[in-house]
């Protein structure tokens, strides 16, 4: 089996300088690895640190200790120690993060938002357009919205734009933080299918899902973070 991601001894505490410099321990010594085509679900009660862990894997939060080796082509990059430009390169090609919130860039049209990651990877404009349209249709986003910037869209519409962007050409490693949170049943089913298809193409998935039914359909394995709860 091909290893896609390996976390080693991840420990995280936040130091809140403006609240009496209180130290907030979240978890300690989390180690695991994820193979191609696996879907690992992070488990545990609210506040246990699921989102924090996912953000560390993406290089968005910095761990207090530990390493995250991610596959980048034939090599591995340690997201924790890599230079910013190397992290950005890994994000472009090897690792993607999907949350329920779209970060809207002023004035950029929906269709362009969806095409953007493909263009960055060298897919032709025609091909990217074709695939973006298919994906938006599949997620039941009305065609009249495709040429508008999503700043005025509803929460669920923005969320589907975000999902379209992330799944139209899924990264080899996909981090999902409640991507189905505010979707209706029909669209949730589409997302579950998209995740399955990404896995078939070899993507490794690490995700957080509140919905038990979705969790059961997606998971190949669970990682319970309660076991790593740091002593306060």
């Amino acid at each position: 089996m091909t290893t896609m991601l390996k976390a080693e001894g991840l420990t995280k505490q936040f130091v809140l300088h403006h609240q009496d410099s209180v130290t907030l321990p979240v978890f300690a010594e989390v180690s695991f690895s994820v193979d191609q085509s696996e879907a690992v679900i992070l488990h545990g009660p609210s506040g246990v640190g699921k989102s924090t862990l996912l953000r560390i894997l993406y290089g968005n939060y910095r761990p207090s200790k530990g390493h995250v080796h991610i596959r980048h082509g034939q090599d591995f990059i340690d997201i924790v120690t890599a230079t910013p430009r190397r992290v950005l390169e890994a994000r472009r090609k090897s690792i993607g993060f999907v949350s329920q919130f779209l970060r809207v860039i002023p004035r950029v049209k929906t269709i362009e938002i969806v095409k953007d990651p493909m263009l960055a990877r060298g897919v032709s404009d025609a091909e990217a357009t074709h695939r973006a349209r298919d994906m938006l249709a599949r997620l039941n986003l009305p065609e009249r919205l495709w040429t508008l910037a999503p700043s005025t869209f509803s929460g669920g519409e923005q969320q589907r734009v975000n999902i379209a962007r992330s799944f139209v050409d899924p990264s080899p490693i996909l981090l999902l933080d409640e991507p189905t949170a505010s979707l209706d049943a029909a669209n949730r089913d589409v997302v579950v299918e998209l995740i399955a298809e990404a896995r078939q193409r070899g993507s490794a998935i690490i995700g957080i899902f509140h919905d038990e039914a979705v969790r059961d359909r997606v998971a190949t394995r669970r990682l319970d973070l309660t076991t790593y709860k740091a002593a306060a």
Binding site: T3, K6, H69, H72, G73, Q74, D75, F76, I77, D78, R86, E89
Partner: peptide, 10 residues
């Protein structure tokens, strides 16, 4: 795990 010694892109 092997840390890359040869960068993917020079």
């Amino acid at each position: 795990m092997r840390e890359s010694s040869t960068p993917v892109i020079a």
